[in-house]
Design a binder for these strands. Sequence first.
DNA 1: ATTTTCCCCTGCCGGC
DNA 2: TGCCGGCAGGGGAAAA
Length: 278
Amino acid sequence: MPELPEVETIRRQLTERIPGRRLDRLDVADPLITAPELPEALAARIMGQVIERVDRRGKYLLLRLDEGDTLALHLRMTGRLHWRPGTPADGEERFLRALFTLDDGSTLTFGDQRRFGRMWVVPAGTDERAYWRGRVGIEPLAAGFTTDHLARVLTGRRVGIKAALLNQALVAGIGNMYADEALFRAGIHPEESAGEVDRARIKRLHRGIRDTLRTAIREGGASIDTYRDGLGNQGQMQEQLRVHRHRDDPCPTCGTTIVKTTVAQRGTYWCPRCQPRP
DNA sequence: ATTTTCCCCTGCCGGC
DNA sequence: TGCCGGCAGGGGAAAA
């Protein structure tokens, strides 16, 4: 599923292609994509605006428009954004929900098998710091994300450490897959209470998060399910995953069989030896 | 305030 | 072969 590295990969690809282009047309095939707003209202608001920049906040992709509006998109589980130099052929996008046509004839499609994906406008003049506050926490690859910061957001939390990592309000952009990978690298059991992880292991976790995310970006994201990048290609990170989706495989560190359990209502992969329950 | 549960969706897969 | 229940997990609302 698209997590921070996957969204970042798409952001970088779009950044090379769509800034400077004007939004000429929006065809919405599934009105759920703009819910609870109506597609017509969204289209009326953004049509004719020029895309100035493509940003990312956690798993949100943000198209900055020249009248100050921001078009925010979230791919949720199965969403795909695909830029093409021209119009997609009929049936080329199996789960097409929306199609943007830009002023040079290129297109951006929003496909989504399970229809959880959404897009909406963050209006010009919005205080974005306030807008995201309480909902989306610090960017884990930003300079401000230090071991101290991670320790601070985990302090006093009774929930399991994996649940804490999945909480977007604490640290932005980590999903089920990279939570598993980061905890494995840090040698932490996914169900250990977040507030009880000691300093030395928080430091390892901080490093594990950043190393995992950086590697995943370098590999262009992980195509374990439906993920494709902004050009329709698969990523390569699935080859580098050490525990996630590796049930019954030997641990790459110690050879112990990787197990899969349910933690925080999510399928969770971990090594019983490298990640002992404290 | 924090934590837990439920819900939204639908293609796919294993079991019978 | 075909039917069917269960699974996948992002985030937000509601409940505890």
